[in-house]
Computed example of a mutant assay.
Amino acid sequence: MVVMESQVVLKKGDLAPDFELLGVDDKKHSLASYKDHDAVLVIFMCNHCPYVKAKVDAINEIQNEFKGKLAVIGINSNDAVAYPDDSFDSMKEFAKERGIVFSYLVDETQQIAKKYGAVCTPDPFLFNKDRKLVFHGKIDNAMKPEDKATEKTMIGVVEKLLAGQPLAKDFDPSIGCSIKWKN
């Protein structure tokens, strides 16, 4: 298991790269699908990573906390040939087993992960109403799968964003498994 830390590719104020990806609901999703939301949280994730497994409940909590205001979008960009646990069928199974309440999409070409500069799972990107990047960083302060979070970083950031308050920082790296790139 290769552990990676988020990198800065998209800068604060950059527009969210658009996408059209298939979700576990068998529907195509794009940024426009979420136009009625005040903010969008794009999280690069997968099924097999212990860091992601440890964060699913926290991600569901974020979606439930800001339902209707914030769209949470999970994107799996892993190579499903080399990592069959991350196949589309496995994504559907994982979403059902884990009670995922947010959109979970597959990025088979890996082009979306590259456009965002995602390197690890989970790798969260928060965008405002204008779909400009305001925060790229961790979900909470539990940096190992076995750690217990004592600070809900992303919830605090989203609360400030939705209240129109300034954010203390725009980058606070997430840590997780490396995205499994195709050769």
Rank of each mutant, 00 (worst) to 15 (best):
V9W: 14
M91I: 00
M91A: 02
I112D: 05
I62M: 04
I139D: 02
E20N: 13
V157E: 08
C46W: 00
L167C: 05
V52H: 07
K28D: 10
G74R: 03
A142T: 02
K67A: 15
P124I: 11
D79N: 12
A16P: 05
D57C: 07
T153A: 01
A82C: 02
F171G: 14
I179H: 02
F125R: 08
P122I: 08
E108W: 06
C177A: 04
V134P: 13
S174K: 06
S174Q: 05
V42Y: 07
D86Y: 00
D14Q: 10
K12M: 12
K96I: 13
L41K: 11
I59K: 03
V101D: 12
N183E: 15
V101R: 12
F66I: 06
C46N: 07
S6N: 08
I62S: 01
E5F: 14
F127A: 11
P122F: 14
K182G: 04
V40H: 09
L105W: 02
G137E: 09
V3K: 14
K53L: 09
Y51H: 02
A149Y: 04
K96H: 11
A32N: 09
S87W: 03
Y34A: 05
V2P: 02
C120K: 11
Q7L: 14
G99S: 15
V81P: 02
F19C: 01
G137L: 04
V56Q: 15
P173T: 09
L21C: 08
N76T: 04
D79F: 00
G99L: 06
A16H: 07
N183F: 01
K53T: 08
L21I: 04
A149G: 04
N128D: 14
G23M: 03
A118F: 08
D170K: 15
D79M: 00
Y116V: 10
L70H: 04
E93D: 07
K27N: 11
K138R: 14
L41M: 10
K67Y: 11
I175M: 12
E5Q: 15
P173M: 12
D147F: 04
I139Y: 04
L22M: 14
A54M: 03
K129A: 13
P50H: 00
F102W: 12
I112S: 05
I139N: 01
V106Y: 15
K129H: 11
V56L: 13
V3I: 09
S30D: 02
W181V: 10
V157K: 05
L105V: 01
K69G: 06
C46A: 06
E108V: 08
C120N: 12
I59H: 03
D107F: 00
S6K: 01
R131H: 14
F66E: 01
K115D: 10
A80D: 15
P84F: 11
H48V: 01
V157I: 15
V72Q: 11
V52F: 03
Y34D: 02
F127C: 10
N76R: 03
L31V: 08
L167Q: 05
D89G: 08
P50F: 00
D36L: 07
C46F: 00
L15G: 13
V24Y: 05
V3A: 05
V134E: 13
P124H: 07
A32F: 12
A16D: 12
V24P: 05
I43P: 07
L22V: 12
V3H: 06
F44L: 07
I43H: 10
K114A: 10
K67G: 08
G176M: 04
A118C: 06
G13Y: 09
N141V: 00
